[in-house]
Nucleic acid binder design. Structure first.
Length: 258
DNA sequence: ATGGTAGCGCTGCTA
């Protein structure tokens, strides 16, 4: 099973690129983030025409997550288990069972700056994600949590660690939150396959960062151990970050033998 | 050097 994740930075602006990418990358499952649209605007038929079922959770101009699958899409849950209306309004999590794997598409809050209340909210959100997984999943099963985590797990996941000393994405509390997910039983599956540095999935639009390969690896596929064990090959598709009007993120994909 | 670009949508916020 080929599982992919891609922060598309507006599905309305990127639909044609996403369709093209589905046609040549042929993922079995694609988790998307930052669709930036309401459920009513989601192009279900466009994906159906390519053989994908879809589940979307979005409320408007910000956030928005989706799962596309051509290996079945069952037991869709939007937001955290037992969350109130308020907590789901940001549309940052959707989960579904696809071909025997419990898959979540996550868009972790950015955090903005270390002294911001949004940074505290980011840490709380990551804690809620952990609680949600504890309540709804078993790490002995096939589980994949995919998306834009807005955290670079290690210094080697950032082009210049010194530049990011007092910023979000690299702080210890954020990395601790990711480590706690690992302790529960989720493996950074791309890292298991590829150990080198300079593997980035996001580049700032500004200052020619993509061209200079000044990026970060913040788009992750976290897999339970039974699933991670079957990972065979992976790719960060930088080709999809080139050309006219790309997303600022590249798709990340992994082939699993399930 | 605190810039730069992109999306949404029409003013400035978010990333």
């Amino acid at each position: 099973m080929r599982i992919a994740t891609w922060n598309v930075n507006s599905l309305k602006a990127r639909l044609e690129r996403v369709e093209d990418w589905l046609s040549y990358a042929h993922p079995d499952v694609l988790c998307m983030q930052e669709t930036k649209m309401a459920d009513a605007a989601f192009p279900t038929l466009a994906f159906q025409a390519l053989g994908y079922e879809a589940a979307h959770h979005g409320s408007g101009r910000w956030n928005g997550v989706a799962i596309l699958s051509r290996v079945g899409l069952e037991d869709v849950v939007a937001g955290f288990s037992g969350a109130t209306e308020d907590e789901t309004v940001e549309s940052r999590l959707i989960s579904a069972s696809c071909g025997g794997v419990r898959i979540s598409s996550v868009y972790v809050p950015n955090g903005r700056s270390l002294d911001s209340e949004h940074y505290q909210a980011k840490l709380e959100w990551l804690g809620q994600l952990r609680d949600h997984l504890l309540e709804t999943c078993d790490p002995a099963d096939q589980v994949a949590v995919c998306g834009d985590f807005n955290v670079a797990p290690e210094d080697r996941d950032v082009f210049d660690p010194a530049k990011f000393r007092a910023t979000t994405h690299t702080s210890e509390p954020e990395r601790d939150a990711i480590r706690r997910l690992s302790e529960w039983g989720l493996v950074d599956a791309f890292r298991e396959l590829y150990d080198q540095d300079r593997l980035y999935s996001w580049w700032d639009y500004r200052a020619g960062d993509f061209h200079q390969h000044r990026g970060m690896r913040i788009d992750l596929i976290l897999a339970s151990r039974p699933l991670a064990k079957s990972a065979r090959w992976g790719l960060i598709d930088r080709f999809a970050r080139k050309g006219k009007s790309p997303s600022d993120h590249a798709p990340v994909l992994i082939d699993f033998e399930v």
